[in-house]
Amino acid sequence: AAMNNIQQLIMILNSATDKPSDTLIVYFNNCTVNPKDSILKRVENLEHIFKKKFAEAVGPAWAEIGSQRYKLGVRLYYRVMESMLKSEEERLSVQNFSKLLNDNIFHTSLLACAVEVVMATYGRNASQGNGTSAETDLSFPWILSVFDLKAFDFYKVIESFIKAEPSLTREMIKHLERCEHRIMESLAWQSGSPLFDLIRQSKEREGQTDQSEPSST
């Protein structure tokens, strides 16, 4: 099953590129504010961060493995982004996705989801079987701490990601579903989650402000 997942992922990403496709460039050019430069810069910045955190987690000898996995994640990220935009264009009959494509959290969440799929495909422990005593679990939600991403925001991209990539294996869909459940049941309710502000705003809109109650309660 593990080999099948890896082979399927390699097959999906064989024809994918490390840079935005011509189709994606057209979407970027259609934006009120062209997001191309910020997207490329973010991918580059997060690569440095991911490599560093990966090496810290499993040892400097494995840094190159981390780099390879990140690069596969980037290919999947651009591929899924293109698929999502095509679906949205069809659904909404618009071509200008300036607000979405200039949203830092959207891109960080989407890239994190893509890298999470790659990490889950290759297994949770990079140093499996080499006898080291400090094996680190790199499975979800490790990626959230690496990208400094809130679970609530990561959750937003999961279903659309699954819809946009029909080649995902059943195991990967199940993995993403487990991530969703974990966020819903626990991670989205941690201190600092954007969820509490949204609940407060929702109550204020309904005229139900309660100054005496702490938001966490």
Binding site: L100, D103, S160, I173
Partner: peptide, 21 residues
């Protein structure tokens, strides 16, 4: 995707989730 529960409704997509509608 047979076992996966799709929660988004007919008129919902990624644009709405990131307040871009």
């Amino acid at each position: 995707t047979q076992d996966y529960h799709f929660g988004l409704e007919e008129g919902e997509g990624i644009s709405e989730l990131f307040d871009c509608d």
